[in-house]
Design a protein around this nucleic acid. Structure first.
Lengths: 329, 329
DNA sequence: AATAATTTTGTAATCGTTTACAAAAATATT
DNA sequence: AATATTTTTGTAAACGATTACAAAATTATT
């Protein structure tokens, strides 16, 4: 079944049928009614390929993830998908594995009109490239951003999140606080670290830089970091972690050392992935509004889809600090 | 840049250029060389929309998940994606949320040629529908299957997995063993339960049906199940769970009851999701070969993509039982 | 009632490919 | 050298939609 057959059955031209489909005002009410009834009867849905070829639009957006293996993304994608669906867009998910070549390959889909826009969660490409790309194609960064790039994005205030967490510890009389983070030198890491430092400054607490440990985000890296930190003279009474996996590793090492987490030492993670709730002790964490991040990301790209020259918006959504056993609750 | 421009630059017709692109043998070697150099120079990639319209193929497959919120799927999808990519197929991921209407909506993409085939992880639709669908469109079930449907699928031997696990417990002298499962009445559940029962029969161990508890797959359901089981006279010394989340809930409840998991009571989960390794105690589990399941699922659909009448294959991949602290290792 | 203005409909080109079929060129056979 | 065969190339029609533009039908204005 295609538009031509529908047209034949109706006794109108394909142009008229097409106008009905696309809600074009210049078609008589009576005609519209007849055409719609035939469309309905045959369950006709216009072929998206034909339409895409003609309109040079695919009505698809690409979601570009650094990896699939992170619980954190699933709810965000759901938010994107639901919102995209409402606006008649399909969502395609692809994974770059942090490889620039794969990233370029998928971004090539923009140039080829295979997708109309891209929501990206992490870019290895530089600010200039991203800026230029975003001038020509609807492009939005979500949760991470390329520092210096002119592009719409939606994030939480990573600096403030860690600032708040750290300040809370300081206000509860913790004098020695450690910070375990990743070392990709990306926006989220830089701003989280700066939040950690700022909290010390604002509360006149002297900060020993050796309390800041950086490695990767693996579970084992959290454990290693704790070993390192606790080989110092003055050991911390609170540990701020830049991810839940780091917090998990840190806590399991502390348990091995028979240090009571939540009493002797407080630990907090980041992202509030499902493991935080189930672990013993349950892990306090900074929660990002995942579904809303996804929804907002689509809203942002939708503006660009309708007008590529729409101004770049920088949206910041609120985070929440969730206290569980690992911070003594 | 399009094929017409390339043709002009080369001084050949679009037909010849198209033949070069599609590795058609009837083009002179010298011509091929010239055309390829121009294609290379301009970085030309044929427009997939134009091609799709003409060939009535999209070179895309759909992966239909019941939910995104399960770590279990990520590696399988990676396996599908990598293999699909090798064969020039793009992978689209969609989520049904177990709603029949959404499932139908996405399957409609098959009829509309938006995708060439579908790999599905759970179907709410009945065997007849699936059978008919699979006759007309490349369709493969992965990890789950619709009992009675004639369709290619790839699974592990769920019955044998639980049979092996249970048998091991029996052989290690456990006399009272509980089984906690979901109650969707899907293939995996039915076969796992039957493996549990069969192991008892084959080892002449009497089975009290009240030791089989069914609910959902949530963490809390595992905890509830343990409460129920331990309110009996004769409490079990081993618990077989149909998922890791159930095992997690069970273990945390046992801990609350101050029962030593891995010594007094053994617990094993299913799927070997990342939490199993990190929890305290670490959780034993049945591991499915996730990447290979994905790879095989694509291989199966690839056969159907090339010949819709290819015979339906039922592939069974090997599982592994991984022992950790929760079974005393 | 004739004309102008507006609304409704149709014709045909277009998007970027692939592919029957035809035509031309190259090679083989007599 | 003439003809038959094979190889290589080109022409033009599809695929299924949208959309200028033209034409026809309707309505409004005089």
């Amino acid at each position: 079944m295609n538009i031509k057959k529908i047209a034949e059955i109706c006794g109108y031209s394909v142009a008229t049928v097409s106008r009905v489909i696309n809600d074009d005002s210049r078609v008589a009410a009576s005609t519209r009614k007849k055409v719609l009834s035939v469309i309905d009867k045959y369950n006709f849905v216009p072929n998206i390929t034909g339409r895409s070829l003609r309109t040079q639009k695919s009505n698809r957006i690409l979601v570009l993830l650094p990896t699939m293996a992170n619980q954190f993304y699933t709810t965000i994608i759901q938010g994107i998908e639901d919102t995209a669906d409402e606006h008649g867009y399909a969502t395609l998910v692809a994974v770059s594995n942090l490889e620039e070549s794969k990233e370029l390959k998928y971004l090539h889909m923009l140039r080829m009109n295979h997708v109309d826009g891209c929501i990206s969660f992490f870019n290895t490409l530089d600010a200039d490239y991203i800026t230029q790309l975003s001038k020509k194609y609807p492009f939005v960064q979500c949760c991470e951003l390329t520092i210096g790039a002119e592009v719409s994005h939606v994030v939480i205030d990573n600096e403030k999140a860690i600032y708040d967490v750290t300040s809370e510890f300081i206000e509860n009389n913790h004098k020695t606080i450690a910070f375990i983070s990743g070392n990709y030198y990306k926006y989220s890491e830089i701003s989280r670290e700066s939040g950690f430092i700022k909290a010390h400054l604002d509360h006149n607490l002297k900060l020993d830089k050796s309390l800041i440990v950086k490695s990767f985000y693996r579970y084992t890296d959290g454990a290693e970091a704790v070993k390192k930190i606790f080989s110092r003279d003055k050991t911390p009474t609170a540990i701020v972690c830049a991810s839940d996996s780091l917090a998990l590793g840190a806590i399991s090492e502390l348990k091995r050392m028979e240090i009571n987490v939540g009493e002797e030492v407080m630990v907090i993670g980041f992202d509030d992935t499902s493991i935080t709730e189930f672990y013993k002790p349950s892990i306090s964490s900074v929660s990002q509004p995942r579904y809303e991040l996804g929804k907002e990301a689509f809203d942002l790209i939708f503006q660009k889809l309708n007008n590529i020259d729409a101004t770049n918006k920088k949206v910041i959504l609120p985070h929440r600090i969730i206290h569980r056993e690992s911070t003594g609750y």
